[in-house]
Amino acid sequence: MATTKSPPRRKTIKNVYQLHVQLLYVEPRVWRRLWVPDNLTLTDLDQVIQTAMGWTNSHLHEFEIDGQRYGMSLDEYPIDKPAKLDKDYRLSEVLSQHVKTFIYTYDFGDDWRHAVTVEQTLKPDPALNTWPQCLEGENACPPEDVGGVPGYMEFLEAVGDSTHEEHKAMRRWFGGLFDPKGFDINAVNIALRDVEI
């Protein structure tokens, strides 16, 4: 029986990655720039991206890095080549020198694909960058369960036009007003402090 490795919770930080995370195929463009230490597991990185983007982590996710898939255990969905468990791999192990971009997918139904670019590899500075941080970003992420890119475009059209026949229904469904340009870096960084990693 194969055993899975369980990384220790804390490991020395050798590098901090500056990542640019952009949600693909939506307008206005939704993106975040993050600092993340290399001792995070991919499960931890999922938590950081979820928090920074504004998702609620209500669905499955997967990373595609250097030709390999990493995700959660999906015993109920047998496939030919299952993903490796993301909890077993740290950023320091999967982000080699030649990895410049990778894909993070959230919610296999809505299929929110994010392009993640490794912009810089920095040396850790305990006064600045040894914990996950959001440096900047733009625009609100789409609401959960809105129906992917097509559903989000329809949602934006309806909530942005008070004469649209679905305007009231969409506002009620969302729970109020929706500002597609809404992004609060302070709120994101406060939320990141509470992420359990």
Rank of each mutant, 00 (worst) to 15 (best):
P28L: 01
Q50I: 09
T163F: 12
H61S: 02
R29C: 12
W173G: 06
M153I: 12
T101P: 06
A83I: 04
T51E: 02
E64A: 12
P150F: 08
V188E: 03
M153T: 14
N57R: 13
D111A: 15
E27A: 10
E144K: 05
D38Q: 07
V159Y: 00
T105S: 12
C141Q: 03
G137S: 12
P37W: 02
P142R: 09
H20D: 14
V99M: 05
M72H: 11
H114K: 04
L19P: 01
R10I: 12
A191C: 07
V116A: 04
K11L: 13
S6Q: 12
K100E: 13
V195G: 03
L19T: 02
T4A: 13
D66V: 10
T4V: 15
N189H: 08
R69N: 14
L135S: 07
A127G: 08
L19E: 01
F102A: 02
D161A: 04
Q22W: 08
L45V: 03
T130G: 07
G151H: 03
E93A: 08
H98Q: 15
V99S: 04
D88I: 06
V48Q: 04
S6E: 15
K100H: 14
H164A: 04
D86I: 01
T130H: 07
P150V: 08
Y106K: 00
N139L: 05
T51W: 00
V36M: 04
R171Q: 15
D88L: 10
L45I: 03
L34P: 02
E76Q: 11
G151K: 03
V48L: 09
Y25W: 10
V94C: 00
P124N: 08
P132D: 05
F108W: 06
D110S: 04
Y89M: 04
N15M: 14
G182T: 06
K100T: 14
D194F: 15
E136K: 14
T105I: 11
E62L: 08
L156Q: 02
V149Y: 10
Q18R: 10
P150I: 07
H61A: 00
T105K: 07
V16I: 09
E62S: 09
T12V: 12
V146K: 00
G148I: 01
I49V: 11
P8E: 13
R33Y: 06
V146E: 00
D194S: 10
V159H: 00
K5P: 11
A115G: 10
L60D: 05
A83D: 08
T105H: 05
L45A: 00
Q22P: 07
K100P: 05
A52Y: 04
D145T: 04
F155I: 00
N39F: 03
K11W: 12
L85Q: 13
H59K: 08
R69K: 12
A52K: 01
P37A: 06
D44W: 06
D179T: 10
K5Q: 15
V36Y: 01
N139D: 07
Q120S: 13
Q47P: 02
M53Y: 02
R193A: 14
K84H: 09
V99L: 04
I185M: 10
